[in-house]
Design a binder for these strands. Structure first.
Lengths: 206, 206
DNA sequence: GTCTATAGTCGGATAGAC
DNA sequence: GTCTATCCGACTATAGAC
């Protein structure tokens, strides 16, 4: 696939990453793609049309590229390790999604495709969590689908945070890894503590 | 403080929230502030100059407004409850910070003030966590400062996520509350499990 | 300090030749 | 499908009157 449409899609993703939502103009994207500016409108109707198409295109491609790695995850710690890899990958679309999210707060056209792009990651994490947390107190007392969404949101937040405070972001990630270890231990505590936890939870108002 | 400079600062914050980083132009901000467009440059030199000043100004003001609520937090669950309130507050600057973060990925001028704005929240959360988690396994095995940074990043991510999938964001928050309850129980398990956890942690490679 | 006016640039979008 | 050329509005920033 090396036709103009694909070039524009990749150009849009590159531009979103390197110049942000505020710099994602038809001209900038066309330059990045190495094609004529008018073709943005000919093929996609408008800049937002191209951005939404690019988002759908990119999310599909990206998650597939990481599918095998997701399948190899065996613990929360593994998942965070993979998250580290994904965030370190220059070509990963976390930054692109962050920019589209920023734009979506203000431009309703962008919302559906951005939500779809996010859901690709969420589904993958949901799948992994369901597998990794099966038969643990976590899956019994915490909505795993909700947790998958929270993790996706946190990854986006960390990606943005990294852009303004690399050391702080590294510290944040390290603490999450420590927390994951702690939760893994919680899993390993066995049926006795599971019972203790269950009775404790029953005692609560909410 | 109702002079032009202050009007512009507030106008900038409003514009960032309502029109995003891509819509934060001198004209839009001046219109929101009810002043002349040229004054942006007279008082702040450039649009980015105004945005950075507004960020510093807003973060200071906001965190102070919530200080008492932070002081009242007694548990992780309380903290998430407060987070819910802050995210629901239209005038809160989470959205503004999210937009500035998106811009900072691409515009180095914005980085220092955005980092400062974020650190105001991080410090507050750090303070609360230090108090709430004192004498718990969490504070013993997890870098609390890192956790504070992770929570700030997650809140930013959730704020953005909410803009494209309200139901999904609600689910994410609910699952975090369940997780917080679980962690609170971990705190209550007493010295025996603390010892168990400690030996388990020693057994690990990392 | 505040205004008008304006220079110069960049943006979205379209018309029409090839 | 792709190009050039162009319209027109919005943008940053400045000059200069008040």
């Amino acid at each position: 696939m090396n036709d103009t449409k694909t070039k524009l899609l990749r150009g849009a993703l590159d531009t979103l990453r390197t110049r942000g939502i505020a710099g994602a103009s038809a001209r900038n994207i066309a330059t990045a793609a190495g094609v004529n500016q008018a073709l943005v409108f000919h093929h996609f109707g408008s800049v937002n049309g191209l951005l939404t198409a690019a988002c759908t295109f990119g999310a599909q491609e990206q998650v597939e590229a990481y599918r095998k790695r997701f399948d190899a995850v065996r613990s929360l710690t593994d998942l965070l390790e993979l998250g580290r890899t994904i965030r370190a990958d220059e070509r990963a679309d976390l930054s692109m999604l962050a920019q589209l999210l920023a734009g979506s707060q203000v431009t309703p056209d962008l919302v559906p495709s951005t939500a779809l792009g996010l859901s690709r990651w969420t589904e993958e994490i949901d799948r992994v969590l369901g597998r990794v947390l099966a038969n643990t107190p976590l899956s019994e007392f915490v909505d795993v689908g909700g947790l998958a969404r929270a993790i996706t949101a946190a990854f986006i937040g960390l990606d943005l945070y990294e852009g303004v405070d690399e050391a702080g972001a590294a510290r944040a990630v390290a603490s999450l890894e420590q927390l994951a270890d702690l939760l893994t231990i919680l899993e390993d505590l066995g049926p006795v503590s599971k019972l203790a936890i269950r009775t404790q939870l029953r005692r609560r108002t909410r």
